[in-house]
Amino acid sequence: MTSIPADDAAWTYVSRKLINARLISLGIGLAVPAVVLLVVGVFTSPWVFAGLVAIVIPAVWGSWVVVRQVTAHAWMERDEDLVIKRGRMWRATTVVPYGRMQYVEVESGPLDRAFGIAKVQLHTASPGSDAAINGVPRDEAERLRDRLASRGEAQLAGL
């Protein structure tokens, strides 16, 4: 019985570029209220600027969470299955057998493309298996997809 190793050697961690991509999208989300506050503050009272604290705190905390999340996100290819781990606060380890993969999807939005990363999403017949690897380097993602597809084909079992 092979247990899932805790040591880092077996895991492939996702690209650190995902941190940048996530920070940018976090920044965009927080920039809008910040700009609104600034404008309102300029035209009314400077006390409004105090509200910026309410934006800075989530920004700092969010950045910290993003860094922690991304550095904990990894995958491991084993003989029979793919193991994905993610999260630190809410830790989840998902095991997806190759023979159960219905299809594999590689998608990358504009931000992902700018950083040359992609998201590899695995689909099984279960809606519960939430198996996605974010921030895989683009060419690696394509290789991973092909590898998964061929292994899936070799081991495919009926429902």
Partner: peptide, 8 residues
């Protein structure tokens, strides 16, 4: 079993 996960 389709897939498994451990959550915490």
């Amino acid at each position: 079993t389709q897939s498994l996960s451990l959550e915490e």
